[in-house]
């Protein structure tokens, strides 16, 4: 074992090693190095801690992000409760979240053919942009964008209306609206605040 490492393994490579993304000689080389190097062994522990932290975060459903149907299936296999709403362009949906929900999902149906870059503009009920998710991951063949709303935030939110606009952004910077979706959220969890 050595305390000082002359050729430290890149943390991202160690991460790949942890999640079985290395194969053959590359995996063998990392493993052999780890057997002899305390520095990289410690670095691997950091990487594992980070990876497990990310896994926990995803498991909680508390991050607003674009997800795949496969991730939601995995969550359900893990016993998580996934609440889903689907809207068409120009459509609106009545929605809520209960204390038992672990994931809150909005599926925005959209024709994404030919779209190179898409932004998701999140607006208040008056249509004023509050936040923009830039260059969201899209798959032109999927016919929809699956947005995971933070279930933690949603559970704390009052009754309100949220408008989402899916925008195609051209390289020139010009924007074209692909669809607008309205979510009428009704709070169903009692507000713990006095008079709430």
């Amino acid at each position: 074992m050595t305390a000082n490492c002359s050729k430290p393994v890149d943390p991202a490579v160690l991460s790949d090693y942890w999640i079985s993304r290395l194969h053959g000689p590359e995996e063998d080389a990392v493993e052999e190095h780890l057997m002899q190097c305390d520095t990289c062994g410690n670095r691997l522990r950091d990487v594992i801690a980070l990876a497990e932290g990310i896994r926990r975060l995803a498991h909680e459903g508390s991050i607003r992000m674009i997800v795949s149907e496969k991730l939601l299936s995995r969550a359900e296999e893990d016993g998580r409760t996934v609440r889903r709403y689907t809207t068409q362009p120009g459509g609106s949906v009545q929605c809520t979240v209960t204390a038992d929900d672990d994931f809150l999902i909005g599926r925005l149906a959209a024709d994404l053919r030919g779209v190179k870059r898409a932004d998701l503009s999140i607006c208040d009920g008056a249509g004023i942009e509050l936040l923009r998710l830039e260059d969201i991951p899209i798959n032109a063949d999927s016919g929809s964008v699956i947005l995971q709303e933070s279930v933690t935030s949603a559970k704390a939110a009052p009754t309100n209306t949220m408008i989402m606009r899916l925008l195609s952004v051209e390289s020139s910077g010009d924007e074209r609206q692909i669809g607008e979706y309205t979510f009428n959220h009704t709070r169903s969890i009692p507000d713990p605040r006095p008079g709430g």
Binding site: I19, I54, H59, M65, S68, L71, R74
Partner: peptide, 10 residues
């Protein structure tokens, strides 16, 4: 964000 979540959770 999506890549790391899909990779490490699922």
């Amino acid at each position: 964000r999506t890549v790391v979540m899909l990779t490490y959770y699922d």
